[in-house]
């Protein structure tokens, strides 16, 4: 299958700040492509450029074979977009929201009814069809938005943090729908997230930090690049322990939240037996596990992906939204 999204040398500069510093990637038709990175890494800016919302400062992007700058309207007709913030009209009913979308996208009259029924069924909202959206829960609104994004049978569905701000149960449901969608409609899904477990579902993951792609591969391959297993220990004297481990085993130790020291070894279980026997400083906890995508990020950047402090996060968001004006 061909590439549905092609991006080369994509850059976005704002006055005093380069949000995206040259991104190259392609997305194959029918895959779930994940964009992983901390808040402010440039994920949303990239997705906004791909979906013609903002104009790239440099570089080229093509979606469904159409150029994102010169063939905007064709790109727009080929994509569905689900933003971080709700873009429903809450004063209208679910049906009215969907009907308007059909008209905006020029879906033929005879097909509308059938399509609306179909997408409502996918997200289990058939019985709420004539209710005002205002009365919906957060999760239901999200599902309705996904349904709406599907109405015009987009080739690519862009989901910007589709589950942010939802409770774990609703998040799980949303994912069920997304996977169902991929199976049923064979649609290509391009999503951004900073939840690790969500990125694991993707066929391929691009890791973004500071406006640049720092890795792009399948989640399995990314994790195996980390090399071996992850050992996490906490001791009564972490500073000394860190030095000793680094000297003895020639491996890089990272200090994590909750007083944990984390490092990688090739054969985890055998290593652990020897390590516990030999280590002088009293250990308070020991843990062995397979690497996760969080470790991948840690391995690549030396930092964990986590919520940045609010002020910093808001600052970044503002920069991005304000940018083009």
């Amino acid at each position: 299958m061909g590439n549905i999204v092609e991006v080369s040398g994509l850059k976005k500069r704002y006055k005093d700040f380069e949000a995206v510093k040259g991104v190259d990637l392609y997305v194959k038709e029918g895959e779930i492509f994940g964009f992983l990175g901390p808040n402010g890494a440039g994920k949303s800016t990239t997705i906004n450029m791909l979906s013609t919302i903002i104009k790239p400062s440099e570089g080229m992007a093509k979606v469904n074979g159409y150029d994102n700058v010169t063939e905007k309207n064709k790109v727009r007709a080929s994509i569905g977009l689900i933003f971080q913030e709700s873009t429903l009209d809450e004063k209208l009913t679910a049906n009215e929201n969907l009907m308007l979308h059909c008209k905006f996208y020029g879906i033929e009259k005879q097909k509308r009814e059938e399509r609306i029924q179909e997408v409502l069924q996918i997200v289990d909202l058939t019985d709420r069809r004539s209710d005002i959206v205002e009365t919906f829960s957060g999760g239901m609104k999200r599902r309705l938005e996904i349904a709406r994004g599907l109405l015009h049978y987009p080739k690519v569905l862009f989901l910007d943090e589709p589950t942010v701000g939802l409770d774990p149960q609703t998040r799980a449901h949303i994912w069920e729908y997304i996977l169902k969608l991929k199976e049923k409609a064979g649609i290509t899904i391009f999503l951004t997230t900073h939840y690790m477990d969500e990125a694991e579902i993707c066929d391929r993951v691009a890791v973004m930090d500071n406006g640049q792609l720092i890795a792009l591969d399948t989640p399995e391959q990314l994790k195996s690049n980390v090399g071996g297993d992850i050992i996490e220990v906490s001791t009564e004297d972490n500073q000394t322990a860190k030095k000793i481990i680094e000297d003895t085993y020639q491996t890089e130790v990272t200090e994590m939240e909750n007083n944990l020291l984390s490092f990688q070894v090739s054969k985890g279980s055998e290593f652990l037996v020897e390590f516990v026997k030999q280590f002088d400083i009293p250990l308070t906890s020991v843990n062995l596990r397979r690497p996760t995508l969080n470790d991948v990020f840690l391995h690549l950047t030396g930092r964990e992906i986590r919520e940045e402090t609010v002020s910093q996060k808001d600052l970044m968001k503002k920069n991005m939204q304000r940018g083009p004006h």
């Binding site: 979906s51 309207n73 064709k74 977009l81 933003f83 873009t87």
Partner: peptide
């Protein structure tokens, strides 16, 4: 945004 990202 819903309006502006449509092909209208």
């Amino acid at each position: 945004r819903e309006i502006l990202v449509s092909p209208m």
